[in-house]
Design a binder for these strands. Structure first.
Length: 472
RNA sequence: GGCGGCGUAGCCAAGUGGUAAGGCAUGGGACUGCAAAUCCUUGAUCCCCGGUUCAAAUCCGGGCGCCGCCUCCA
């Protein structure tokens, strides 16, 4: 029994997770910037965090999971220039930034729930923690890490010796690279804004008073301030997408470690890889800027079950890029429906389990999830259970439901809403007419009706209880 | 220019030294009047070349291809 082993970006190694506080794990997850609909790629990082949380719970830890919502200050270009995304979205749509944030936050929460993500213990918004962010910026100022230029208060990365360590940055090379210096007065290219001043003369929708004047917080500040508030200045695990390693998390670490004088701020930093879009050799990451985003509702419109997206997610390891395309999601949908059907079949089974029957599967399942959350392997174990004829129904049920605490596929209560439940007098009549023709052995007539219905996407299912039908 | 990752059957993918998990699709079989659904079953010398080793998809070197980060992005 080796315990839970996780890949830690901070050390670039798999390490055994040992909670700072006995039996209790504190996890912080970088949530969405709610200026636009959250797409399937965004959902992947929520699913990843949720998988982590579920594994922690199954391993017997108490978990405090904090997820933030960025509803201000995330700029369109880089950390220092460009428009605030919330402000820009508001301007485009002629609505209040708060309205937009509320709408996309609600959509995001709904999607999260639909793919089976557990509710976080704390859901916190940047705009509701302005005071905490100012407080942290003041701490940094008091400790000499900041300087002021015309458009804001900046963090001086040269003052933090470990700055490049986390992301293994080559700051020298960066200066000659693609990065273009845009902000007049910045001392180092990597320096970033803690507080941005509101532009004189133009009134922002979102701005606050601060010791440095009216303005708004830099994007990175919220995560440092809120994680410290809800989890303490040192906690166990911080999660987010890989894209955040080099900038957002690097800056967050600088703020937290310098402001609160701790090291490390989070023991484990974990990052999920991206969803790529495409098939075969050509792939592109799914992102708003590439214009190839899909949201959960698009899948649902296609007849895909929301939990089938979770099943899809579980089929690949979280640290690998995963290729998304129609064939892939449809096959996941089929796979999920079949697995669910198997679970439904044994749901009501009662009786006693033979421990020796369960043990090998339990051991292999646990081994998989404890090895850096290897969901594909865990899912494979579930399928082996389904196919093992030496298991009794109740043993199968026991194993599947136990595994589902991690898989989160709602195997215990989800229903396969066969369209066969639907009623449509016209179709019902046709189905009955076919039944009658079959009884009379008028095969040609029976097949004609079946084919005609198939033409309009209605499929007849012959069962021992009689014929039913479903769409698709 | 710097950094990182990937390349395993038609597709999604596990597997990091001892002759390759799982799912979907395909072919075959059972069932069916024929089908559908369901169940059983079927298939890979692991991108190429060279090396280390008794043994490599797995390690090393060199190619080729793809993706990502260093600028907003999960």
């Amino acid at each position: 029994m080796q315990g839970l082993v996780l890949y830690n970006t901070r050390t670039r190694k798999k390490e055994i997770l040992t909670p700072l506080e006995p039996e209790h794990l504190r996890i912080y997850t970088c949530g969405p910037t709610v200026y636009a609909p959250q797409h399937l790629g965004n959902l992947r990082s929520q699913l990843f965090a949720d998988l982590l949380k579920r594994v922690c719970l199954v391993e017997g830890f108490r978990v405090t999971h904090v997820v933030n919502i960025t509803d201000v200050g995330h700029l369109t270009d880089d950390a220092d220039t460009g428009e605030d995304k919330m402000e820009a979205a508001a301007k485009r749509s002629g609505r209040r930034a708060e309205e937009i944030a509320a709408e996309y936050t609600a959509q995001w929460m709904r999607d999260r729930e639909r793919v089976g993500c557990l509710k976080p213990e704390v859901l916190c918004k940047a705009t509701e923690h302005i005071a905490e962010q100012i407080e942290l910026a003041q701490r940094l100022e008091a400790r000499g890490y900041t300087y002021r230029i015309t458009d804001g208060i900046y963090f001086d990365t040269a003052k933090f010796a470990r700055y490049a360590e986390f992301a293994r940055l080559d700051l020298e090379a960066q200066e000659f690279g693609a990065r273009i210096e845009k902000v007049e007065g910045k001392r180092n290219p990597a320096d970033f804004a803690l507080w941005k001043f509101a532009e004189p003369g133009s009134k922002r929708q979102q701005e606050w008073d601060s010791p440095w004047g009216r303005g708004f917080p830099g994007w990175h500040l919220e995560c440092s301030a809120m994680s410290a508030k809800y989890l303490g200045t040192q906690f166990d695990i911080h999660t987010g997408g890989v894209d955040h390693v080099a900038v957002h998390h690097t800056n967050e670490i600088a703020q937290s470690e310098c402001g609160y004088e701790v090291h490390p701020s989070a023991q484990f930093w974990m990052h999920n890889e991206f969803l790529s879009f495409g098939k075969g050799d050509l792939h592109e990451k799914m992102s708003k800027s590439k214009g190839n985003v899909l949201v959960l509702a698009d899948l649902v419109a296609q007849g895909i079950l929301p939990l089938a997206f979770r099943y899809f997610f579980l089929q690949a390891h979280y640290r690998q890029q995963q290729a998304f395309h129609d064939e892939a999601i449809v096959s996941a949908d089929t796979g999920y429906r079949r697995l669910l059907a198997q679970a439904i079949k044994v749901r009501d089974a009662v009786g006693v389990c033979v421990q020796e029957q369960l043990a090998p599967y339990q051991a292999r399942f646990r081994e998989a999830i404890c090895d850096d959350l290897n969901a594909p392997r865990a899912l494979a174990v579930a399928w082996e259970v389904v196919h093992d004829a030496t298991l009794s129904e109740v043993e199968r049920k026991t194993l599947l439901l136990e595994f589902d605490r991690v898989l989160g596929l709602d195997l215990a209560t989800a229903r396969l809403e066969e369209a066969a439940q639907e009623r449509d007098p016209r179709i019902d009549a046709l189905v009955q007419a076919r039944e009658a023709a079959r009884k009379a052995k008028h095969w040609a007539e029976a097949d004609r009706i079946r084919d005609a219905l198939l033409q309009e996407g209605i499929e007849i299912l012959d069962t021992p209880q009689g014929a039913r039908w479903k769409k698709r």
